[in-house]
Simulated assay, not measured.
Amino acid sequence: MKFAFNGLLAVLAVFDRAIGVLERLVIGATVLAMAFLMSAHVVGQLVFDQGIPGSYEVTEMLIVVMTFVGVSYAARHARHIRMSALYEQLSGAPRKGLLMLICAGTAALMFYFAWKSGQYVLEIQGRGRVSSSLGLPMWIVYLALPAGFGLAGVQYLLTLARNALTPGIWRSFNERETYSDVPVHGTEAGGSHDDRA
């Protein structure tokens, strides 16, 4: 039984690494493309008195892609916004149970958003909507929404699986919650405690 769990974790780890490579490639490529495009646009305006047509439009599209793929990246590294007032009051099995419940609920929400945004992409495609300057079909840009939400849902499922199959509390598939992450009574994690009255 333990061998099966270890095998499943190994398969999930490979899957997680593949998604991580995809996320880094997309985010890195969009940042580099934006930097290159805007730099070339500024140089073109300063040197040739004419920038690159459509550069602002392309930059806005790249921001959409980076934002929604970034949702998955944030979930992978447990850098997402967390409402943790109740969670931080718990420890041990109740804390882990609540984290697993949160992961399951958030995964379901992410998959719902992916489904709804996929419907939106199909609607945009059906209308034939294109960008104003370049005439690029907007549905291609908006594919980042269902892709990003879907990848984020997968990240939460991976975190759920890690917590279900492994001892300890895991904030993401690769990041274990450490003692320093748990606030000490009356202080923030990593903060100093002032004994003065």
Rank of each mutant, 00 (worst) to 15 (best):
Q50T: 12
Q50G: 08
G54V: 04
G54L: 05
Y56F: 05
V58W: 07
V58D: 08
V58S: 06
T59A: 14
T59N: 09
E60I: 02
E60F: 12
M61W: 11
M61C: 09
L62R: 05
I63L: 15
I63S: 03
I63N: 02
V64A: 08
V64D: 11
V64T: 08
T67W: 01
T67P: 06
F68N: 09
V69G: 05
V69D: 03
G70M: 05
G70W: 10
V71H: 01
V71Q: 11
S72H: 04
Y73P: 00
A74S: 15
A75N: 06
R76V: 00
H77T: 14
A78H: 02
A78E: 03
R79M: 12
R79H: 11
H80R: 00
H80F: 00
I81L: 15
I81C: 01
I81A: 06
R82N: 08
R82V: 14
M83H: 12
M83A: 13
A85H: 09
A85M: 04
L86V: 14
E88Q: 13
E88T: 10
L90T: 10
L90G: 13
L90P: 12
L90I: 05
S91V: 07
A93S: 12
A93G: 00
P94M: 05
P94T: 08
K96H: 02
K96C: 12
K96P: 04
G97A: 08
G97C: 01
L98T: 06
L98Q: 11
L101R: 03
I102E: 12
C103W: 00
A104I: 01
A104F: 12
A104W: 03
G105P: 07
G105I: 08
G105T: 07
T106N: 14
T106P: 02
A107L: 07
A107S: 13
A108V: 05
A108P: 06
A108D: 03
L109F: 15
M110W: 09
Y112C: 15
F113T: 02
F113N: 13
W115R: 04
W115E: 05
W115P: 13
K116L: 15
K116E: 10
G118F: 06
Q119K: 13
Q119Y: 02
Q119N: 15
Q119S: 09
Q119P: 06
Y120K: 07
Y120I: 00
Y120R: 08
V121H: 13
V121A: 10
L122M: 12
E123K: 04
E123S: 08
I124K: 11
Q125L: 06
Q125P: 02
Q125V: 02
Q125E: 13
G126F: 06
G126D: 03
G128K: 07
G128S: 08
V130I: 12
S131A: 11
S132P: 10
S132G: 00
S133Y: 00
S133K: 06
L136T: 15
M138R: 10
W139R: 01
W139F: 14
W139L: 05
I140P: 04
V141E: 10
Y142L: 12
L143R: 07
A144N: 06
P146Q: 03
P146N: 11
P146L: 02
